[in-house]
């Protein structure tokens, strides 16, 4: 009797859960494309990071965030580097060209469609660059509440043989 009722509850939950997803504004894919990437020993954290900085994430988390399709990836490098190869679907906001004064216009033009609570991952090339760290600090300060830094950057992404989007052929 109890087991039968438990099965009925599970079946109803499955019907409601899978059915509601069809009409949900926060719809997700039924079968997620998650996988574990071997060889990751936690996030790379630069020595100049301080405790108030947005959290750092490793390649596993970055890949997971990418597969959710909800997270905005921001490449903080220069346009040229961005076009030569970046994480697919990323937006380019070159930190080096960030205006000194009011950031509102700048962020509104590039991130106008992004809600302040939407997950954002900022990255640059890898350990040698710090544009991701500085851009992430700016974004968090500006009001984006779910900013993380993938400090391994595009190089670590490539090292794990993950897909790279190339807008132009830069050789090498």
């Amino acid at each position: 009797m109890a087991i039968k009722q438990a099965i009925i509850l599970l079946v109803i939950a499955a019907i409601l859960g899978l059915g509601a997803n069809l009409f949900s504004p926060n719809k997700i894919e039924y079968i997620g494309a998650y996988r574990n990437l071997s060889g990751s020993d936690g996030p790379i954290i630069p020595p100049d990071a301080d405790e108030n900085d947005p959290p750092f994430i490793d390649i596993n988390t970055a890949h997971f965030e990418h597969s959710t399709k909800r997270t905005i990836f921001i490449d903080a490098r220069e346009r040229e580097e961005f076009e030569c190869g970046t994480i697919p679907g990323s937006i380019n906001i070159p930190f080096d060209y960030l205006p000194d004064g009011d950031l509102k216009l700048y962020f509104d033009s590039s991130l106008g469609h992004v809600a302040f609570d939407q997950p954002i991952v900022v990255f640059c090339s890898g350990e040698e660059c710090d544009q991701s760290l500085h851009l992430a600090r700016n974004l968090a300060e500006y009001g984006y509440s779910d900013v993380t830094i993938f400090f391994g950057g595009s190089r670590e992404w490539e090292r794990f043989s993950l897909e790279i989007e190339r807008r132009k052929n830069c050789g090498g």
Partner: peptide, 22 residues
């Protein structure tokens, strides 16, 4: 890191409704 990757979304869709119904 306890559930196979392709089951994660199915669990995320069904489990909350099971909690609600219970």
């Amino acid at each position: 890191h306890l559930v196979p990757g392709n089951l994660i979304n199915l669990i995320a869709l069904i489990l909350p409704w099971l909690e609600l119904l219970c």
